[in-house]
Design a protein around this nucleic acid. Structure first.
Length: 568
DNA sequence: TCAACAGGCGCG
DNA sequence: AAAGCGCGCCTGTTGA
């Protein structure tokens, strides 16, 4: 990457379209007073054109959607909200300077007022929403930014933690851009899929929505098969359990996995009902009405919404799109979807984290699970379960034997996750490769697991279970959070290279979806090959930025398709 | 009447 | 003996 001089510009919005902008140095020291601009979006665009800018602002989630709507795109930023979360998670035991806390609190309150989706709330907020003085907000931005820069520099690994903050900030930009772009979604295809399996869309009524015909049929058949005297509400696990028991079907729960083990004529009907009822309630016509408009599904991503650094989402269950409905994700005419996922990301991350040479050697293979199977002598499926057990802390099934084999064959990788588990059990925190820190144990956990003062008094019987649960959490955290680090650096890198692809006649390839270890780029068909290459390059860049030199490879499984369901 | 909880299941 | 990690969101149930 070419590093030109990047200037830092602190900015806050003012009333109407105005705003305040002012340059600060690398360390955050202001280089003069803030200037007022009457059209903030225009000023942003102009400065972006003039050179490389890092915008220092309170929150991309609150500010960037409005700028995007006004046609302003920014290349990079320092997101005070996201960076602050990273720093606070790391410095949990240290008090922040009161002046910084106060400034951050004022900014948080101000950003709530700026947030575009809270506009309506503001109308009713009355005098609770104090007017924000932009001059004060700008000074707060400058002060908090300077403090954050210093706190990043104070990290034991400042380059890595700095990379984390930069990637997280870039993630915030990518998230807002993806919401603005939307995931191409064909409502007609979705409707056809629903109609095929559920029957035609029930007509709207004043009361609760009618049940689709197929669900009604199944419910009737199930009641009949069970010989129920009165109709059973199949959506109530309690009622269903009772009805099953009355017909001699004794099960511990109504979970699909439990029902599958039962041989009874009602079971296939129930399984079909559960699957279709889920589709209808989670992603049925009402979901379609609510979340898809203008041929796009626009979820809100919550960057840093998971403690591990994975993104969460708000509204529409964006990170749980059922496989069936991926058939409705179709590129615009003349465009294509480049769907890429990092193959077996988490075990590869573990290999790189642990510096386990034997495991790294194995992880150079295209199919990691197959290679592990060969290494420990067994089936691919067994190897996969054993590896996942090692990372999740499970001991289930016949995994015990394979787990022992893994431990012998890959001692360093095993020791790495075991160490993380021990730390968690002892109430310590663990960090990802770039320095994202897991939360401290709760007060409840501490009192539950604390050794009793009186040696005669028995420990709470739940203490061991709680300690082991936290051990499983920290064991998984080091892997899941490091995978999130890697994926977010990839996303940030890819976002940059896509922005540099000029396709004036065709349109710009752009990110439309990001799900933990998978990205989708909506691209003019002619640009697809270039996008595929950019994705491979981004994976290489992410690997070297995050891990430095490592033998572990991170292959991307990439498909160029018209329809999302055509990928793998 | 509404909020919190439980059971369940979609995704990685 | 039992148990694996992280989420969001739906419906039904419970209790203030």
């Amino acid at each position: 990457m070419q590093h030109n001089q990047v200037v830092r510009v602190a900015m806050v919005p003012g009333s109407h379209q105005s705003g305040l902008v002012g340059m600060v140095g690398e360390d955050g020291t202001p280089e003069g007073p803030a200037q007022e601009v009457s059209d903030l979006a225009a000023a942003v665009t102009e400065l972006e054109r003039a050179g490389d800018v890092r915008w220092i602002w309170p929150s991309s989630a609150r500010l960037y959607p409005d700028l995007l709507r006004a046609g302003a795109r920014v290349a990079r930023c320092h997101d005070i909200e996201l960076t602050g979360s990273l720093i606070r998670a790391r410095d949990q035991d240290q008090a922040e300077p009161p002046a910084i806390s106060a400034a951050a609190a004022r900014l948080a309150a101000a950003t709530a007022a700026w947030g575009s989706h809270t506009r309506e709330q503001l109308l009713f907020a009355g005098d609770e929403a104090a007017p924000v003085d932009p001059r004060c907000a700008w000074t707060d931005v400058v002060d908090v930014h300077a403090h954050q820069v210093a706190r990043i520099a104070a990290d034991p690994h400042p380059a890595k933690f700095g990379l984390l903050a930069a990637a997280e900030s870039a993630g915030g930009l990518a998230a807002a851009e993806m919401t603005a772009a939307g995931l191409p979604w064909r409502a007609d295809v979705h409707d056809r899929l629903l109609t095929e399996v559920l029957g035609p869309r029930p007509p709207a009524t004043a009361g609760p929505p009618l049940r689709p015909t197929r669900l009604a049929e199944l419910a009737a058949q199930i009641s009949e098969t069970l010989g129920a005297v009165r109709p059973v509400n199949l959506d109530s696990p309690v009622q269903l359990l009772r009805a099953l028991a009355a017909s001699g079907v004794r099960v511990s729960s109504t979970r699909t996995s439990v029902l599958r083990q039962v041989d009874h004529p009602v079971i296939p009907l129930l399984l079909e009902y559960k699957e279709l009822a889920r589709l209808n309630s989670a992603n049925g016509w009402s979901w379609l009405d609510t979340w898809v408009s203008g041929g796009r599904f626009r979820p809100e991503y919550v960057v840093g919404g998971v403690v591990s650094g994975r993104w969460a989402s708000r509204g529409g269950g964006a990170l749980q799109i059922p496989r069936l409905l991926r058939q409705a994700v179709i590129a615009d005419p003349g465009w294509t979807l480049v769907v890429a996922d990092a193959a077996q990301l988490e075990p590869r991350i573990l290999a790189a984290l642990a510096g386990d040479r034997a495991f790294a050697q194995t992880a150079m293979s295209g199919d990691l699970y197959e290679a592990v199977a060969a290494a420990i002598g067994g089936e691919r499926k067994t190897a996969k379960v054993a590896l996942l057990s090692a990372m999740y802390g499970g001991m289930g099934g016949d995994g015990g034997r394979s787990l022992a084999l893994l431990r012998r064959r890959f001692p360093q990788a095993s020791a790495f996750v075991e160490r993380a588990a021990r730390a968690g059990e002892e109430g310590q925190v663990v960090r990802s490769v770039l320095g994202r820190t897991c939360p401290l144990p709760s007060a409840a956990w501490l009192s539950l697991t604390a050794d009793s003062v009186d040696p005669d008094e028995d420990r709470d019987p739940g203490a061991g279970a709680a300690a082991r649960a936290r051990g499983r959490f920290t064991r998984n955290f080091v892997v899941q959070a490091s995978a999130a680090d890697w994926a977010q650096v990839l996303l940030a890198t890819l976002r940059n290279s896509l922005a540099e692809m000029s396709a004036p006649d065709l349109g710009q390839p752009h990110l439309v979806f990001f799900q933990h270890d998978e990205v989708i780029v909506h691209s003019p068909a002619e640009k697809a090959d270039e996008v595929v290459a950019a994705i491979d390059a981004a994976a290489l860049t992410a690997t070297s930025l995050v891990f430095g030199a490592t033998a572990v490879t991170f292959p991307m499984a990439t498909a160029v398709v018209d329809c999302y369901s055509g990928a793998k």
